[in-house]
């Protein structure tokens, strides 16, 4: 195996992929959003339970897709769990790529940023008012 491949499919990333943090339904979610990458069909849904002061009391993800998109969702949900809303809203795309760690080509960056995109939309999507477009 070449060094690059080691880097992309490293222990840390595979751990998140095969044993994800908070994969499933969020109990009593207040905010949620589902996004997909139409290029590859990867889907990530982020569900949040936000306190009245905006703190992320609970965060979950669910989805279907490649190792990169699902592992990055797990990392992201773990990262924002219990954090204040302002910090989550300020968490940038570059922060996400840094959190993921491995070097990614532009195409795979889209996979990595899918959960981040879903999260940023979820922050502004109270449950009940979320976009109900058919995403199939």
């Amino acid at each position: 195996m070449s060094p690059n491949e080691d880097e992309l499919y490293q222990e840390h990333i595979l751990d998140h992929y095969e044993d994800p943090f908070h994969r499933g339904k969020c109990p009593r979610p207040t905010h949620a959003h589902e996004d997909e990458n139409p290029l590859c069909g990867d889907v990530v849904r982020i569900e949040l339970a936000m306190e009245s002061d905006g703190t992320i009391r609970d965060a979950y993800f669910d989805g279907d897709g490649c190792c990169i998109s699902q592992a990055s969702a797990s990392m992201l949900v773990e990262r924002i769990h219990g954090r204040p809303a302002e910090e989550v809203k300020n968490f940038s795309a570059n922060d996400m790529l840094e959190l993921f760690g491995a070097k990614l080509t532009p195409n795979r960056q889209k996979c990595c940023l899918l959960p981040w995109r879903a999260l940023q939309s979820a922050m502004y999507s109270p449950v009940g008012a979320e976009d109900t477009d058919d995403k199939s």
Binding site: L8, Y9, D42, C67
Partner: peptide
Amino acid sequence: HAHDVAQI
């Protein structure tokens, strides 16, 4: 996943 297969 197919993308991971292709990448490897």
